[in-house]
Every structure is written in C-alpha cells, then in structure tokens.
Design a protein around this nucleic acid. Structure first.
Lengths: 129, 129
DNA sequence: TCACATTTGTCCGTATGTATC
DNA sequence: CGATACATACGGACAAATGTG
C-alpha cells in the first residue's frame, strides 16, 4: 500500500502543448522533492497512477521511466516503485564537466543516471533501505 | 533513404529469455560499432526496422531509445535517426568517478548521455554534421 | 509445494499530433 | 498540400518477480 496519497485529483490538461507524461513527471517530481513522497517510501503502483491521472499505463510508465533516469526513483520487479535516497539525487546534478564540453560544441547534454542495478539480489538490497 | 541495408533478414528469437528490444538493440549496436551503419548516416526508419525485425514499433522504439541513451544514435523529429559521431560515444564511457562512488554504495550505475538537444534550430545544427 | 494476488516487464495493434521536406 | 518520420497516447495481452496464504 502506497503512502502519502495526493490531496487533489491531480488535474492534467490534455490540450496543453506539454505532453501528458511530462505533466505527470513534473507533478511526481514535485511531490518527491517537497517530501510528499518520502525517501525510501513506495510510490503508488502504476495502476494506481493510471487511475489518479486518468491516463493509460504507457503514459505513466514513460513518466516513471524518466524519473528513474533522473535518479529520483527506482523500481523493483514484482515489488513496486520507490523513492530514492535524497543523497543520491542531490549529487546527480553535479556531474558537470562533460556537459560543459558538449555545450561548447553546440549541444546541450542531459547527463543523468539511468538505472540502479542491484548487484547480488534485488530483494536483499531493497530490504536494507 | 537509409544506407547500409542488412545482409540477412536479421533473425530474432522470440523464445529467448532476452527481450526482443534487447536483441534488436544489440544487433543495431553491433552494426554501428563495426561500421555497417556509418557515423552521420541515417539509420533505417522505425517502420523499416519493424519490417526488418518483424516486431512492433514500440519494440523498435525501445531499442532505439536505449541506443540514444547510450549516445550511439540521435533522433531528429520529422527527419530520422542518425548514427552519432564516433568521437561522441567514445567519450561516453569515461564519465567515471561518480559511478565508482555509487558502486561502493552497493549500486551499479549506468551513467550515460540521454539526449542531445539542439539549441537554436535542430535543422541548422543537424546539417552541420 | 502449490495457488493466488499484486506489481513491474515486455509486446502488440492502433490512432493522432507534429516536424521536415 | 502531401509524403515521410518521429512523438504521444490509448487499448489490451501475457510473462516474470514478489509476497502471502
């Protein structure tokens, strides 16, 4: 059972030029950063999120996948989605150096941690959170 | 029109424990690294890849999305998918420091460039490749 | 061992929007 | 305007991992 259920029906705007998964991503990110979704706590399941936001599971998964790439959350197959340790995603924005080099080349790089892979047993490590 | 068409029908194994998008990803990566898909050349379109591998477009997109995260390819909306400059993805594996720190925490991090965002006009920059 | 529910992972078909040419 | 190509979004289905009984 997930904790910290949202207070509002979490209104989205389908007509907006910004994609639904981006809106969902931003809302979830906000709740993680402001503590509504506490570190190490379990996020609402994908089916719950589809109900909360009235969107399809694909859209939810895209938002969650992006947040995972940002390092804010991680998933465990068969268990659920969890909020990362704050320490982890505080460091994520400090990977500079490469990005600046690319910027000088005319690119804007988005350099982020994509996934946390649990080495020995995903369950064993997860329980130590 | 893409160049460097594959020699074989590119056989995949649906029964394999390794996901289809992973098999596709590995095959495409191989052709990029061995030069079958040359740097700056256009990859086959998503619809062509669905035909080549006999899979759905979602599966193709997942493979291409992963390769883009690896920095091997990049996409331009409305134009196509292109092979990155070799120099670009040679440097990608040298972002260490953070990854090693995370490893000591019990994580295995996959630290990669996720996207190349073209600043002023995507077309203008793309033409300079 | 087995069955079952829950949750994430993979995969398909389809439709529509947007950018490029 | 039309053709091509990638982006977004929906629906559904089944598999695999986990936890519980």
């Amino acid at each position: 059972m997930p904790n910290a259920k949202p207070s509002a029906p979490t209104r989205l705007y389908a007509v907006s030029p910004v994609p639904l998964y981006t809106q969902i991503k931003d809302q979830l990110r906000g709740r993680i950063l402001d503590g509504s979704y506490a570190p190490h706590s379990q996020m609402p399941s994908e089916s719950e999120l589809t109900a909360m936001f009235k969107v399809s599971r694909i859209t939810v998964r895209q938002a969650l996948g992006d947040l995972q790439k940002e390092g804010l959350i991680f998933k465990i197959h068969g268990k659920g989605t969890y909020v990362s340790k704050p320490k982890a995603f505080q460091n994520l924005t400090h990977l500079q150096g490469f990005g600046e080099a690319m910027a000088s080349l005319g690119y804007e790089t988005v350099n982020q941690v994509i996934s946390f892979k649990f080495q020995p047993a995903s369950r064993a490590v997860a329980e130590q959170l």
